[in-house]
């Protein structure tokens, strides 16, 4: 659970009773409308926020008691994360590698590999401030992988991107899966989620309403698509 002090002094509970498991090579989509608590859940998993109560475990390590160790195990991608305007992608990636104590030789080798994988070799030495949104996104995707984390957290990774940009993200997610990483994606784009995720968690008003693979959810709800399931869930809420 996570609660914040509200403007009136009363505690506002953002997330309550959210539990799920993700295995390696699995893509888990955390779905829900805006304000459902997706980002807060993600930030707690990232060790950026301490849960008010409860815990999350990555590789057996606790987020509540060992947030710094967790940070080394998790890569974070979000369109809200920016790039350093006055550094080149190469400089920025070396800097991030240094933050995670990646040895310099290994960092250089990884930058080369990621430049080829994500296709930013052409502008690897230009300053980030002059890059387009799509180009910046590629640099950011590379940034999250600089310390080779076993778990990846993606927060609205396609927000504000065009079709090409989104496709790069989809390919990236596919790549993460083949590399054996556990991937958790927060999104409100249900149609997209259906394309790339193995299992789904439907979050609404801070709690997890549904959780399982698409066939499981279809069986549970009697609806064929995620969108329908969600709309029905909302309807129930309204009626109740």
């Amino acid at each position: 659970m996570k609660s914040f002090p509200g403007s009136d002094g009363q505690a506002v509970t953002a997330v309550n009773d959210v539990s799920f498991e993700v295995a390696s090579s699995e893509v888990f989509a955390l779905l829900g409308p805006n304000g459902a608590g997706k980002t807060t859940t993600l930030r707690m998993m990232l060790g950026l926020m301490q849960p008010t109560s409860g815990d999350a475990f990555i590789d057996g390590r606790s987020v509540a008691s060992d947030p710094e160790a967790i940070k080394k195990l998790v890569g974070f991608v979000s369109t809200s994360v920016g790039v350093y305007q006055w550094l080149s992608p190469r400089e920025m990636l070396s800097f991030v590698a240094d933050l995670y104590d990646v040895p310099p030789a290994e960092a250089t080798e990884r930058i080369e590999r990621l430049a080829d994988l994500l296709g930013f070799r052409d502008y690897i030495d230009r300053r980030c401030g002059v890059l387009s949104t799509g180009q910046k996104q590629r640099v950011n995707l590379a940034r999250a992988l600089m310390h080779d984390p076993p778990v990846m957290l993606l927060d609205e990774p396609t927000q504000g991107l065009d079709i090409v940009g989104s496709q790069v993200v989809f390919d990236y997610i596919q790549h993460l899966r083949t590399e054996g990483r556990a991937v958790i994606i927060c999104t409100h784009r249900l149609d997209e989620a259906e394309r790339f995720a193995d299992r789904f968690g439907l979050l609404h008003e801070g709690s997890l309403k549904l959780c399982g693979s698409l066939p499981q959810l279809q069986q549970q709800t009697g609806q064929s698509s995620l969108t329908d399931m969600f709309l029905r869930l909302l309807q129930h809420e309204v009626l109740a």
Partner: peptide, 14 residues
């Protein structure tokens, strides 16, 4: 404002 703070705070640096 530029969103780079999250890069820093999500790194294992105090």
């Amino acid at each position: 404002e530029r969103g780079t703070m999250e890069i820093l705070v999500s790194a294992p640096v105090s």
